[in-house]
Amino acid sequence: MRAFNAHGPLPDGSQSVESAIAMINGLFGYGGPSQMLHGAERAVTLETDRSSPFYALAQVTLGHADVSSATSIARYRRCRTSPQ
């Protein structure tokens, strides 16, 4: 999938192949907890269109990665700064 990074938005509505890969890494954590959190943070950075379901999925991915990697301080910080 990485070979297709420069193709821009995908037909399914996600912003890019990079975003899709970041969400997969954030949900499944193939490289361990730190890679899971990194992928989820990257997905949130890339998925910025609030009207897209992929924006919501990126946010859920980040919450999942936070819980899975047991970063309670990060969870607290994100909850305090999350959009209403």
Rank of each mutant, 00 (worst) to 15 (best):
Q59E: 15
G32W: 07
I24K: 01
C79R: 14
P83A: 10
E18N: 06
V17D: 05
E47K: 09
H7K: 14
L10E: 04
P9G: 11
G63F: 06
D66A: 05
S14C: 02
G13R: 01
Y55V: 14
L57G: 07
I21F: 08
V44A: 13
N5I: 13
A65S: 08
E47T: 07
F28I: 01
F54D: 05
E41T: 03
D49F: 02
N5E: 15
R50Y: 01
M23W: 08
A65G: 04
G31Y: 03
P53W: 11
M1V: 13
G39R: 02
R77I: 15
T45R: 12
Q35I: 05
N5Q: 09
A20F: 04
P33Y: 01
G63W: 07
R75A: 09
A6Y: 06
Y55R: 12
R75T: 09
F28P: 00
L37M: 08
T48I: 09
H38M: 07
T61A: 10
A43K: 02
F28Y: 09
S69C: 13
Y55C: 14
S68M: 11
R78K: 15
V17A: 08
A70T: 00
A43M: 07
N25H: 06
G32H: 07
A58M: 05
I21M: 13
S82M: 15
L62C: 02
A43I: 11
L37P: 00
S16C: 01
H7P: 05
R77P: 00
V60H: 11
E47G: 02
S72I: 13
A56Q: 14
L27S: 02
H7R: 13
P33N: 05
S69D: 04
T45Q: 13
I21R: 15
F4H: 13
A43C: 06
G26E: 03
Q59F: 02
V44Q: 05
Y30V: 01
L62D: 02
V44T: 12
R42Q: 09
G13D: 04
P9V: 13
T71M: 08
V60W: 14
S16I: 12
Q84G: 10
G8P: 07
E47S: 04
I21A: 12
G31I: 07
S68W: 01
F4Y: 12
S16G: 04
D12E: 09
S19D: 03
L27A: 03
R77F: 05
T61K: 01
T81D: 12
S19R: 04
I21Y: 10
V17G: 01
Q15Y: 10
A56V: 13
P9R: 15
R78C: 03
A40M: 05
V17W: 11
Q84R: 09
E18D: 08
Q15V: 12
R2A: 09
R42C: 02
L10C: 06
L62S: 01
E41L: 11
A6H: 06
